[in-house]
């Protein structure tokens, strides 16, 4: 990490902590106003270092792998499309995939913190979906927790020498599912049930979010695999440049 980058990271940490308080943070899947202000601020503050890390990584990509900028825009677009698709599910309600697994697998999780918050801001400001006061919490679940799980699952699967496309599927699907598990916990902490406490409430929200999400996670996994298959055929130079494919591989 260069000197400037270090400065930038520490500045963002400080600014984040200060601004996080005044701006009260925001999020995506949790509805506007449904998190107490303390929680909203705390989740926002937690996101800041990840966002700074993501900005540094993106600047690196822009400087060192110019070819891959289009690919970066495409993984952002993928999240944009997928998070706009509200798909009916087995519980009789609808939800949408997150689309963040693809970018996490190709570029690493920190990058998705930045791309994810853009999607969340768009939805919160223009679509009245999610909200600015819950932006921090939603960014944490969709743009940080989910992508980091995808990143980890993918790395683990590759270590275990599992087929690459199967690894991609598992990483994307589990990251998607985990996003909503985190959301359930966030709501559970904010709204403990009178009878069951925090865990009782987490179970309640898990029943709503996570259950609805299972089939959608499968869809997200499949779509991610399809896109990766296409990229493996047509965008080999870029995939090599970002290290997804081995440098020497055909």
């Amino acid at each position: 990490m260069s000197k400037n980058e270090k400065k930038f990271l520490s500045l963002s940490l400080m600014l984040g902590l200060v601004l996080g308080v005044t701006q009260a943070a925001g999020a995506m899947h949790i509805m506007e106003g449904y998190l107490p202000i303390g929680h909203a601020v705390a989740w926002g503050a937690i996101c800041l270092p990840f966002l700074a890390w993501g900005v540094i990584r993106i600047r690196r990509i822009a400087a060192n792998s110019r070819k891959s900028i289009l690919l970066l825009a495409m993984v952002g677009a993928f999240a944009f499309v997928l998070s706009a698709l509200k798909i009916p599910s087995v519980t009789g309600s609808s939800s949408h995939p997150t689309g963040t697994g693809l970018g996490a697998i190709l570029f690493g999780a920190p990058v998705m913190a930045v791309l994810g918050i853009i999607v969340l801001l768009f939805q919160a400001v223009l679509l009245a979906h999610g909200g600015l006061t819950t932006l921090g919490a939603n960014t944490f679940s969709m743009a940080i927790a989910g992508p980091f799980v995808s990143w980890g699952v993918y790395a683990l699967c590759r270590k275990l020498r599992i087929n690459r496309l199967v690894s991609v599927f598992l990483a994307a699907a589990l990251g998607d599912l985990f996003t909503y598990v985190v959301t359930s916990f966030q709501l559970g902490f904010a709204h403990p049930s009178v009878t069951g406490g925090v865990m009782g409430s987490v179970a309640e929200f898990m029943g709503i979010f996570a259950l609805t999400q299972i089939p959608l996670a499968v869809i997200e996994g499949i779509l991610t695999v399809v896109v990766v298959m296409g990229l493996e055929t047509y965008a080999k130079p870029e995939l090599r440049e970002i290290g997804y494919l081995a440098k020497g591989a055909a």
Binding site: M31, G33, Y34, S89, S93, S94, S95, A124, H129, I208
Partner: peptide, 27 residues
């Protein structure tokens, strides 16, 4: 097939009936 976030809104109403949302969407 309403949104799952709407269902969560209702669930908050049952587990935490005294909670008042303190912010509304900008638009």
């Amino acid at each position: 097939f309403g949104g799952a976030d709407g269902a969560a809104e209702e669930a908050i109403g049952t587990v935490d009936p005294d909670y008042e949302p303190w912010a509304e969407s900008l638009i």
